[in-house]
Structure formats: C-alpha cells, structure tokens
Design a protein around this nucleic acid. Structure first.
Length: 567
RNA sequence: CGGGGUGUGGCGCAGUUGGCUAGCGCGCAUGCUUUGGGAGCAUGAGGUCGGCGGUUCAAGUCCGCCCACCCCGACCA
C-alpha cells in the first residue's frame, strides 16, 4: 500500500472533543471517523487492525473447539420478553418497529437467539459439549458513550456460548475459554488482569472480567498486594477491621443537636465512625428499603441490587423518606416495624453502636443487634476499599483503574429453562442445558492496545495487530532515481517475502514523513534516502527504539524478517 | 437522566460594548525555490457563523425554543 493512495489523512491538531489517548491518536492518525455519539467509521488502517484482532480471536476460539456461526442482528422483541431482559436491560435495548408495527430489536447480545438455536438442535447429551461463537455487530443505546472506541453504541463483539450437560462439564469449558482469552490478550500485546466480576443483567453465577490497566479505565479493580485476589469493585469483598467487642450496655438516648451525618455524630460524641450505624434508603423496583451499615463503610449498590433481585435500584428522595415516617439524619431500625430492611454483616462487627433515635436531634447509644432491633436480611453489602484487608490472605488491598476488554459468565440454566432448551441424559431424563457465555469487544480491545502501547509521538503497534509491519519511508524521490529504484524494489521484495509494507512515496519533507511514521506506529521503519544510499544501504529502525541501524540493501529483507520474528 | 461545557471553511482557534466585503494558523490547489524530524515565497479555492423563531434600520454578536457533540456522575464488551 502506498501512502499517496491511502484513504485517511493524518492531522496536525487533534480534534478538541477527544481526550482519551487512544481516541486522540486514532483521530490524529486518520484511522477512525465519528458519525454520531458512540458511532464510528473504521478507516482502512484501523480496519486492518480490527481484522487482525478478529483473526487472532478466531484462531483461539477454533483451537478450543469453537464453531463459528452468524446470528441475526435484527430480532423479534418477544424473544426478549420471554427472557425478561427487555426489562433488565431497560433503555439500553434499542427498539424499532417493522412495517407491520411488529416490535424488533437490533440485538445488544445474543443469549436469547443462541438458546433458541440450542433448543432446536440439542436433544441429547451426545450433542454436547458444544461451543458456538460469532463476531458480529451489537447495538446498545448506552446512556453515555465515551472515550472514542472505548464505549460506543455500535460495535463488533466476539461472543462465544458453551453448552454442557452439567456444571462440572461447564467448568471444563469455562477454564478452556479463560485460557483462550488469556492467549488472545497476550497475542494482542496487552497487559491484563483477570478479576472476579458481577454478572449484571446477564445473570448467572461465576463471572470474570479481563481488565486492561489504564488511567482512562471506567472500572475500579480491587486487588491484593500479597496474593492473587483481584475483583471488580462492584463485586470485591474485604475484611473490615473489627473494633474491640464490649459487653452490651443498656440503650440510652443522647442529645445530638443538629448532627445529621455520621461525621457530625461521631465528631459531636467524640467517637470513631465504626462505633456508629448508618441508615441509607433506597427504592427497589418501587419498594422502599431501609439499609443499615456500619458508619465507616459504604454501601455497594451492585451487591444490594443482587440481594434484592431487583431491576431498578436508586436512592430514595427526601420526600419518599418522609412519606415513610422516617427522620432522615436520625433514623434507625430501633422501634421501627413493617419496613423492608437489609443490613450489612458489619452490624455484627462491633458493639454498643450509636444509632438514630428516630426523632430529630437525638441518637441512641449502646444499640446492639439483635437485642435492640430486627433486620430482614443480613449479608455482605459493603463496598470494598483499598486499605482494607484481603479475605484470602489478610494482605492489604489496593486499587487500579481498568478497561474491561472481556467478560465471561457461567450462565447455568437460566436461559435454557426459560427458552425450554432441554436434553435427555444417559438415563433418559430430561434436563436443562447448562450454558456459559463469553464476550470480547473488538474495537475496545483495539483502543486498549493503543492505551497501553503509545508514546508522545504516537502509536506503537504490537506486531501481531499492526496494520502493516513496515513503514517504508523514501526521501527525495523526486530528485533521486536511485532512491526510487531502491525503494520500489524493496517494496516488491518485502511483499514477496510476506512482509506487509506501507510505502510512504509522497513528496513530503523528511520531518512530515518521520512524524507520520511515528504517529501511525508500524513496528519497523525502513528508510531509503540519498544519504543512506551514499552510506551504503538503508536504515532500519524499530518504532519502540530511538536508534536506527544501517543495513546493506541486499540484507534488508532478511534483517526485517528477523526483527519481526523477535518483536 | 442530573451537573458542567462547546458549537464560526477539513483541523485548531479569534471575533460576542450589535455596524462595512467574517479573520488567523494549519491543511488543500497552482507555480517557483527548498529537502534527514511537521520548509519558504507568491497566487488561489473553500464559511447559509448548529437550527428555527424573535428584537432591531442593522444579528456570528441580544432574547426564546430546539438540536448536536464532549466531559463528570448513575449503567456495560
């Protein structure tokens, strides 16, 4: 490919609405073009990268026995009603109507359809294990797209689905898929973490995310500094320090004028926050919920949502709290009846707590569970924070930001039961198919690769996903017939040797060409100029390094092949 | 959806106490010179100033409504 013919122009100034590095570089390099919020065109260079990533994914999927197929983007809305995910996904689900006013959805994912296929094609335990995958366009009406290709509304996703007879067999496939994913990210030149994750709207049991550590990441990863524990903040658990337990004292009313927050109360009474219990109020699918947690901790709303098994969870408004007859700022479960209540385990981690007295300007001291109040459910609903201790080894927890580049789930029989996907086992007994699903966003992976592989000059593509291997840069072609013939023959010879070359044949100044070479980021720059020729050859430079090396023209192809093998 | 911000040639910006043919840099076209880290000179093309409505003798500039995009939060590959 010749740069003079290449579609897509490099820019000197970065469009002002980009502020994630991968977004800036992709725009500056002329690799993508935005059409609407979260909707992008991939220009030829970026599309080559996309295809390379796809192919790496295909190889790894095929290696674990995956069969590629293609499911439709356009799906009947009823399918989503049957699974209940029309509600679980809410507004993210784009919907449209066909000419007969039938509701359709451009699919955001394919569990529904693939389960439908399984229902039709799996009848016997002999039909499994089965691994089906596709690379296909998803549509999600995201509340907010961001970061260029990091979060978009239309994107190619590789989705793999596994079908097994039981959960042990699912575990086998799950492990295989996990390994395939690790291979994919490594081959794409990414540093990643595998973390425990919440399964969100997809449902199911175990779930892991693959996270690329990046400042621009949207997720917070909690990990242990001593052992291998790592989890998405949404899911992370931690050991909360337990203060010294005291003998229960008689409950007592204390005057706390104007103290409404935990900070106020603790400061006013001169106690630490872990000697208090905090009351927080939520509306879960329309129902009021009274949540209690130790004063020094925060509620993890994802955990809470999972406990409540609700589709929609939000903080209650002041009016809603009042309407329940609750005194915000001085509320507790002591003496309160008939309100749905959930508490964090931490109400048992400590004693003689200060809690609200359910009247303005008063609190109660020495409240103890279960002596003084009742709770419907007690479980872990606390947000794990860095600084707390690891539940596995007691080590100190830390946190980093990450981009989620893959997510795998053990679905179990949630979808198969709803869709009626059953098989007959050896004993002739009818059982639901056990499923797993596994997703990778291709464009997000591409963006993540840039987030991790760039410098101040531009992109530094890892060889396996670089749009081209070599940037052949010829200087002074309009004045030197020698340069022209040397460059042209190198172009041919490299292509013949299977090396992918982007040939900068433009009449631009050296500075322009060098800067574009750095910006576009091919792993090797091959320079042909009157000067290099008079020095006896051509100059080979790795993108990641500063220095170039003079090589005889006849040795150049060999030299480059050697470098590519070792990069 | 809540909060903040921006919309002026392809990109980056100026112009906004209303006033003449709307500017600058980059890019683009043509010519000459130049040629190892974003060259110089000359000539030129390209803009219904996001849209609609209003105020006014006069609107890029003032008022109203709408739209789009970006960022921060609530959500996900």
């Amino acid at each position: 490919m010749r740069v003079s013919n290449l579609f897509g122009k490099t820019l000197r100034d970065v469009p002002s609405d980009a502020d994630t590095i991968s977004h800036q570089l992709l725009l500056k390099a002329g690799m993508i073009h935005q059409i609407a919020a979260g909707v992008y065109a991939y220009l030829p260079l970026a599309w080559r990268v996309h295809k390379k990533i796809e192919n790496i994914i295909r190889q790894e999927m095929d290696a674990i026995g995956g069969q590629e197929l293609l499911m439709p983007t356009l799906q009947p809305h009823e399918l989503w009603e049957r699974s209940g995910r029309d509600l679980a996904l809410g507004q993210v689900l784009l919907t449209l109507a066909d000419r007969k006013e039938r509701k359709m959805v451009p699919a955001p994912t394919h569990e529904e359809v693939v389960t439908e296929l399984a229902r039709y094609n799996i009848q016997s335990y002999r039909d499994m294990p089965l691994l089906l995958y596709q690379i296909q366009t998803k549509f999600r009406d995201e509340p907010r797209s961001r970061g260029g290709l990091v979060r978009v509304r239309e994107f190619a996703m590789k989705d793999l689905y596994t079908f097994d007879t039981d959960s042990d067999a699912l575990d086998v496939n799950y492990k295989k898929a996990l390994q395939a994913y690790k291979n994919i990210y490594s081959r794409c030149g990414l540093d990643y973490l595998v973390v425990e994750a919440d399964s969100g709207a997809i449902g199911g049991k175990d779930s892991h995310e693959f996270m690329v550590v990046a400042e621009s990441g949207e997720d917070e990863i909690i990990f242990c500094s001593k052992c291998d524990y790592a989890a998405n903040e949404e899911r992370a658990v931690s050991v909360r320090a337990i203060p010294k337990m005291e003998q229960p004292l008689p409950i007592e009313e204390v005057f706390t004028p104007g103290a409404k927050t935990i900070e106020d109360v603790a400061a006013f009474l001169g106690i630490s926050k872990n000697k208090t219990l905090k009351a927080v109020f939520y509306i879960a699918d329309g129902d009021f919920v009274f949540v209690t947690i130790r004063g020094d901790l925060e509620v993890n709303e994802i955990k809470l949502k999972n406990v409540l098994k609700c589709a929609d969870l939000r903080m209650a408004t002041d009016d809603e709290v009042k309407a329940m007859g609750i005194e915000a700022g001085s509320a507790s479960l002591v003496g309160l009846k008939g309100i749905k209540s959930i508490a964090d385990d931490s109400i048992n981690m400590g004693s003689n707590f200060v809690v609200g007295a359910n009247k303005p300007d008063y609190h109660l001291s020495n409240a103890n569970y279960p002596r003084d109040f009742d709770v419907d459910v007690i479980t872990d609903i606390a947000l794990a924070r860095p600084g707390q201790r690891c539940v596995k080894c007691g080590g100190k927890l830390k946190s980093v930001k990450g981009i989620e580049v893959g997510h795998v789930f053990k679905l179990g029989t949630v979808y198969s039961e709803k869709a009626g996907a059953y098989y007959l086992d050896k004993a002739g007994e009818q059982k639901p198919v056990v499923m797993g699903c596994y997703g990778i966003g291709v464009g997000r992976l591409l963006a993540s690769a840039i987030e991790q592989n760039h410098d101040e000059k531009g992109i530094v593509w890892p060889v396996p996903i670089a749009p081209y291997h070599v940037y052949l840069c010829a200087l002074s072609m309009d004045r030197s017939a020698e340069v022209v013939s040397a460059a042209e023959s190198l172009h041919r010879d490299l292509a013949d040797a299977g090396v992918e070359v982007l040939f900068d044949d433009r009449n631009e100044s050296p500075g322009v060409k060098f800067n574009d070479a750095d910006l576009l980021g091919m792993p090797i720059r091959l320079l042909v100029s009157p000067k290099s020729l008079s020095n006896g050859g051509v100059e080979v430079k790795r993108r990641a390094e500063k220095e170039s090396e003079l090589v005889f023209i006849d040795n150049a192809v060999e030299k480059i092949k050697g470098l590519l093998d070792n990069l």
